[in-house]
Design a protein around this nucleic acid. Structure first.
Lengths: 308, 308
DNA sequence: CACACTTACGATATTCGTAAGGATT
DNA sequence: AATCCTTACGAATATCGTAAGTGTG
């Protein structure tokens, strides 16, 4: 009891043409093969669907009844296949991405623009969140993948390294260290540090360095824009990843690399669930991210991408 | 591009079971064969429908979308096949029969009752009509078959003989011939004949005999009941086929066979189009008529059948 | 190591195309 | 004679089941 699309297609061609040879041509079959196909359908449904008298082919009463629903049925089948192929061709679909705020504001929008230009019909859902929420969204399936850093528990997750993100020293132009080419961690022991909140991956990247951990903390805020404002107001200095420097492009501010030996880094990762494959659209996005990751070098010159 | 019912069925089983081995059992397939079936479906639609990680089987996003319409599609396919098989099993369908008034009133109702008892769901359309209208209904497809007699033009029609219908002489009990065992055509030359109208097959059966054609015609009516009334009123005599004798079962009337050598017959036929097969229901009716035709002997004792 | 899906492979069924058959105009 | 559907039959293809392979808990 296996009705197939080609049987219905053959039926409809024959019902239209009323001629085996012509209908067979439209099915890309020889006439005997087509004849057998019709016979198999008739055997399946248990009744003759066509009266054929060598000279004239007509629908039987039962054939007329079959004809009432067969076109809709074939249309539904072909429509479903067509829809599924739209997913395959990325003419349809959805990608859900979670990303750290730094990447979500800086590098990722340009990637999204490139992706959207290539696959305009794929909807992109982009959630900016702190590290752990990012990872949690991947774990529970709310996001197909996350652009994030190393979390406390990476079990069940697959990671691809994206880039190393070096930290920079941020101070006002009138700060004693403002004219230095580089800065060492020992230079900073007396500085008042403006920190991000504990949920931030930037904060987590910093506390791994013991000297930084000893610095006096003047503020603990949630947004880099606030850090920026506080530094401009002379309330202290900060250490931020190169990936976020676009927040600090003010004439009165300086971003100074850390000296060799004092370097602090965080590793940025592309994270996905290891037990779930990506949808066609998500896979294409994943491929694009991996392909473009070389443009993600943290060299202090990074700017928000503008779509070419 | 040939989507088949079994592919959809396999998909739905797997979506429900989330387990290849169990789903394979429900498809009456070995697990590898089932696996190949799923793969063929995925290849057809162009995307993976299931994430399988040896330990867990889940629908992909695309699979979820396929799942939205697949059940309805399979239901439609199986429903259509089911409907068609109802026709095949005569649990559904329609038979259109045209019949001469004599048969439509006499023998055929009992046949219809037998047929309906066996196939209660098949609708029967019965039209009583004179000979040529009967044949025309078969020609133009308004009737699947006709129980009729030989027409002027039988081209394109297939006939099966049903029985020979002998004519009887009808007169009142006080008629000079009323006590005769048989009657010859020479006995009738002076009788006033009550005829049926020219469209009637009974009339056509009679005019083939030259002596009858020479008889004086007193009336020309359309219904046998009128003939009956006229004979009872003493307005003349008539000649009618045995098949219609049930109209004349009155104590004051006599129906007398024609003597050997004077016999007049008409051949009753089961007529159908030669270029169109019968529907399953019509074929079953046809078979029943042919099987029961022995009960159609024109012996003057014929009565309206009562369903046993 | 037991369970579960995939791959490999030979056997069986199905489907295809060519060629011949039969019926109709 | 020409057209058109069916049947026959060998070849190509697909599908099936058994058995071995791989990966996971």
């Amino acid at each position: 009891m296996n009705l197939s699309a080609r049987q219905i297609r053959a039926f409809l061609f024959l019902a239209e043409e009323r001629h085996f040879t012509r209908a067979a041509r439209r099915c890309h079959l020889t006439q005997p093969a087509f004849s057998a196909l019709i016979q198999s359908l008739e055997e399946l449904v248990g009744v003759r669907l066509f009266d054929r008298s060598t000279r004239r082919v007509t629908l039987t009463q039962e054939g007329e009844h079959f004809f009432l629903t067969a076109p809709r049925l074939l249309n539904d089948m072909e429509g479903l296949i067509g829809e599924m192929r739209q997913f395959a061709d990325k003419r349809r679909g959805k990608v859900s991405i979670a990303a750290l705020p730094s990447l979500a504001a800086g590098w990722l929008p340009g990637i999204c623009a490139t992706f959207s230009a290539q696959y305009p019909a794929v909807r992109i859902s982009l959630r900016d969140a702190l590290l752990e929420p990012c990872l949690q969204m991947v774990r529970d399936g709310a996001a197909d993948m996350a652009l994030a850093a190393q979390g406390l528990n990476m079990e069940g997750l697959t990671v691809d390294p994206l880039c190393e993100d070096r930290f920079y020293f941020i101070c006002r132009h009138d700060h004693p260290l403002a004219d230095h080419e580089t800065v060492t961690t020992s230079d900073l022991t007396k500085e008042r540090l403006i920190h991000l909140g504990k949920g931030s991956s930037i904060r987590q990247g910093l506390v791994s360095d013991s000297r930084i951990a000893e610095m006096p903390v003047s503020f603990e805020v949630d947004h880099l824009a606030t850090v920026c404002g506080l530094v401009l107001a002379g309330m202290g200095v900060s250490l931020v990843p190169g990936m976020t420097l676009f927040h600090f492009r003010y004439p009165l501010l300086r971003a100074i690399p850390l000296a060799p030996g004092s370097e602090i880094r965080r590793q940025l990762l592309l994270v996905r669930r290891e037990d779930r494959g990506l949808s066609a659209a998500a896979q294409a996005f994943h491929d694009l991210v991996m392909h473009e990751r070389s443009s993600l070098a943290s060299d202090g010159e990074f700017a928000i991408r503008v779509n070419p």
